[in-house]
């Protein structure tokens, strides 16, 4: 049966993850993107013309674009850390450097840690660290 929503990126198998490997992408924070995010997140504390919420750009998109693929289907996110260093405004094109920090199998769970450093014209704006159980829900 076909998926309801077309999957834009292919799965990256756990075995292909190499700790220390780095990837790069860019993310354009358009007003349209910010407006939709604000609607979905129920944001009342800022308007689309204000600064961009960090969790808007610390998403899967830069990671998938940089790595050329997505987490295996059924992956669970179990942790997230965001360190904001500088506010970002709408219209900014952020550079994202994605690093696979860890890919280990412990007690049958394939834990993967991915760090993404976002920069605006070579100035770091945010560091995002995500922890996943890779492909957990279909194993």
């Amino acid at each position: 049966m076909a998926a309801r929503i077309t999957q834009q990126f292919p799965d990256i198998p756990f075995a292909e993850l190499s700790p220390g490997s780095r990837f790069h992408a860019e993310l354009h924070l358009t007003e349209e993107l910010v407006r939709e995010y604000i609607r979905l997140a129920g944001v009342r504390t800022r308007q689309p013309q204000d600064t961009v919420p960090p969790s808007l750009y610390c998403t899967f998109l830069p990671m998938f674009q940089a790595m050329g693929g997505r987490m295996e289907q059924g992956t669970l996110q179990v942790g997230q850390r965001i360190r904001v260093r500088r506010a970002v405004t709408v219209g900014t094109v952020l550079a994202a450097e994605v690093t696979v920090r860890e890919a280990v199998e412990v007690h049958g769970r394939r834990q993967v840690v991915v760090e993404t450093v976002f920069s605006d014209r070579d100035v770091v704006t945010c560091v995002s660290t995500s922890t996943y159980f890779w492909g957990y829900a279909r194993r």
Binding site: T45, P54, V84
Partner: peptide
């Protein structure tokens, strides 16, 4: 996390410009 962040910003609006969150 987006909802959490919104709640943090309601409590401390200055967080958005420079802060950490870990969940």
């Amino acid at each position: 996390l987006a909802v959490v962040e919104e709640a943090v910003c309601r409590a401390r609006p200055e967080w958005a410009g420079a802060g950490d969150v870990e969940v």
